[in-house]
Amino acid sequence: MDLLNLFLVHTKLSVNDMIRLSGIPKSSVHRMIASLADMGLLHKDQDGQYELGLLFLQFGNLVAERLDIRHVAAAEMQRLRDEIGEAVHLAVRDGDSSMYIEKLDTDHPVRLFTKIGRRAPLYAGASSRILLAFMPEEEREEYLSEVELKPIGPGTIVSLAKLRETLAASRESGCSFSISELENYTAELCAPIFDHTGRMAAGLSIAGPEGRFGEDWRPELIRKVKQAAHEISLKLGYGGPPCGQ
């Protein structure tokens, strides 16, 4: 896994690259590469460099197909994107990070570049923070007691007191809003999705350039995102009231 994890940030690597980056002894790296290539997890190209094998595509498609929430949310995501004209994302928690598992892009010529699989720490950005806000309290407190708040964008919250205040406000209002927390001049608005047990399942967000999320029309955007998130929750068997009410 140490070798495979290198390919999360590198498209191709030579054997020497993997030895240098992993710190694993040369003989062990050679042995493991041979095994990974035999299993189809790594592929050697004509230049002698390695990349992830096609087996990952097969596994990736299976994981995507089995994430039922993507299929349940598809219609509401489409409706929301068509109504407001901004990119719509579906995010889930993965450890101490959030990750986009689905995205519908906007037709705007000026847009925010995001992609499925993008990760962010749970304290940064609206999608991440809504997941943190609605985590079970014990898990949330454990995370907050250990996390190191580092600036990512100019708007990243790096004060623990402010983060706690913002999380409480998100739980009360049923939404989270961020400006320039991960990238400059960008904004994101997110609402939680709950499953049949009442636990948070995902976050539904819209994102784009900051200028299109002004205070004049932000309340209407909030209403529409929360409504869409609630509709998805109902389809997952959630029986509670709309979040924030």
Rank of each mutant, 00 (worst) to 15 (best):
Y50L: 10
M39Y: 11
L90E: 02
P136D: 06
D38K: 15
E181S: 00
V29D: 00
G239L: 08
S233E: 02
I69Q: 03
K44N: 02
Y100M: 14
A34V: 11
L144F: 08
D94K: 13
Y143V: 10
M18F: 03
E172N: 11
L131A: 02
F194W: 01
D82I: 11
F56C: 05
Y50K: 01
L62C: 09
G153M: 05
R171F: 03
D47N: 13
C190F: 06
A124W: 07
P192D: 00
S173A: 15
I222D: 01
M32E: 12
I101F: 11
S22W: 06
L41Y: 04
L55Q: 11
L6T: 13
G85W: 01
K26R: 13
S27W: 08
F7K: 05
E76L: 05
V72M: 00
S98H: 05
G203M: 02
R81N: 15
M135Q: 06
G208P: 10
R218K: 13
L62W: 13
G198Q: 00
P121Q: 03
C190M: 08
Y185F: 15
R129Y: 07
L160S: 09
A229L: 00
A202Q: 00
R118W: 13
L160G: 10
M77L: 02
M135W: 09
D96G: 15
Y123P: 05
R171W: 01
T197M: 05
R81Y: 09
L62M: 14
G53E: 04
E138R: 15
A75G: 10
G198N: 05
N16S: 10
L54T: 12
T186D: 11
A228M: 02
V147G: 09
I179W: 07
L13T: 04
S22L: 05
G240M: 01
A87P: 13
R81V: 09
R212W: 07
E65G: 13
M1E: 12
G95W: 07
L189F: 04
G174T: 00
L52I: 04
G23T: 09
L163H: 06
L236Y: 04
V15I: 13
Y185Q: 15
L42N: 03
E148T: 15
L167S: 07
C175Y: 15
A169K: 14
M1T: 15
I130A: 01
R81T: 14
L3T: 03
A228R: 00
F194A: 03
Y238H: 05
R223F: 12
L52Y: 03
Q49T: 10
E65Y: 08
S180P: 14
S205A: 14
P25H: 09
N61G: 15
V15R: 04
P209R: 10
S173K: 13
R66V: 10
H89Q: 14
E210N: 12
A87F: 09
Q46H: 15
S28Q: 06
I193K: 02
L163W: 07
M32P: 08
E215R: 07
S14L: 08
E220M: 15
